[in-house]
């Protein structure tokens, strides 16, 4: 199936806002362009409008007047979902309890009028690709969560859609299975080169899967970027806070140096009276020897196996978190220095 699928569609949203009948403003006017074959992740806290955006793309909701949805440049705003050729994986999977696994997967072909023998054969191929062909004749209520998830994905892919839409497909599963399936979905989406839009509130999932990530807040886009951009150069506090832990040090820039209570650091920036240095816990190197730029005192150490998490404070009491190799022996009260990679810090 991987050699003759429909090429992924380019998807464009123009000014898509959504106000529900009860007056809830779920989306502010939103513009978004998704390239063919791209995997775009919509990331954000619950209620920020991810599902609504996905449903507008799918054709399950229509945008407020003025909004437009384009597939490969063609306006599909008025086209109902059944005519858009999208594959959709629902958060609750929405598998049909009245059909077996293989009948579920073949359903899209059945409504397209594909003869029974052929559609069962093709559904069988997809089941094989997902490595669940052994489950073909099971009833849906005999499946585990992870199996249901695979069947839902197989069902959506069996019709060779131009775009696949996934709404928190892993949220209902336990952590170990989640990680496993995440890798599997990642491999599958890349192999099929299908346009994919993936909704999640889990930053690890977003960073691992996305070609690009759209971070959403209160029905609007907070930042669009590659996982690296989002992680290392968050546009604002909200993005930084949502995508993992960020350290911040207050200070000022004078003569190419960022000066703070912990010491000074060479930066490429114009002079500024007030500046904040932001960096991730794992981007800083711990140096036990004296003499390096920024000095801190160790408050707490949490051993985590391969790594340890170290809580530090500067002379003025500002706190940061660091990750260090487990071999370095530290205890509370030690004086340490840190070195920062200039390419992985943000000065805001």
């Amino acid at each position: 199936m991987s050699n003759n699928h429909t090429p992924g569609a380019a998807i464009t949203l123009v000014g898509c806002a959504k106000t529900f009948a009860d007056g809830t403003r779920a989306l502010e006017p939103l513009d978004l362009a998704i390239a063919p074959g791209e995997t775009l992740v919509l990331l954000g806290p619950s209620g920020c409008g991810k599902t609504t955006t996905l449903r507008i793309i799918a054709g399950l909701e229509s945008p407020d007047a003025g909004g437009k949805v384009l597939f490969d440049g063609a306006d599909v705003t008025r086209l109902p979902i059944e005519k858009r050729n999208v594959g959709m994986v629902f958060q609750s999977y929405a598998l049909f309890p009245n059909m077996s696994v293989v009948e579920n997967v073949a359903y899209g072909l059945r409504v397209r009028g594909v003869a029974k023998a052929e559609r069962l054969a093709r559904a069988g191929e997809v089941l094989e690709m997902m490595r669940i062909d052994a489950l073909a004749d099971r009833r849906i209520d005999q499946l585990s969560g992870g199996q249901r998830q695979r069947v839902a994905l197989a069902r959506a892919l069996a019709v060779r859609p131009r775009v696949i839409l996934l709404d928190e497909p892993l949220t209902a599963l336990d952590a170990a299975l989640r990680e496993h399936l995440r890798a599997e979905i990642d491999g599958l989406l890349r192999r099929l080169a299908i346009t994919a839009i993936y909704v999640t509130h889990d930053q690890a999932e977003a960073l691992a899967l996305g070609d690009r990530i759209v971070v959403m807040r209160h029905g609007a886009i907070a930042q669009i970027g590659t996982p690296r951009e989002i992680y290392f150069r968050p546009a604002d506090d909200f993005v930084a806070g949502f995508v993992g832990v960020t350290n911040r040090l207050e200070g000022a820039v004078r003569g190419g140096r960022f000066e703070t209570a912990a010491g000074a650091l060479a930066v490429e920036a114009a002079d500024r009276a007030a500046a904040t240095l932001a960096f991730r816990p794992e981007t800083a190197q711990l140096c036990v020897a004296a003499g390096s730029g920024l000095r801190f005192r160790v408050d707490q150490v949490h051993f985590q196996g391969a790594r340890q998490r170290v809580l530090l404070s500067a002379a003025d009491g500002s706190r940061i978190v660091l990750e260090a190799a487990a071999e370095v022996v530290l205890s509370a009260g030690d004086e340490v220095g840190i070195a920062l990679d200039p390419s992985r810090i943000a000065l805001v």
């Binding site: 999208v86 629902f90 359903y107 959506a156």
Partner: peptide, 21 residues
């Protein structure tokens, strides 16, 4: 409702959804 949305996403018309799902 969700089952029907699932069927619709697979291309089923309202009548097919009613009879088959």
């Amino acid at each position: 409702r969700t089952l029907e949305e699932g069927a619709a996403s697979l291309g089923a018309s309202p009548w097919q959804r009613f009879i088959q799902v």
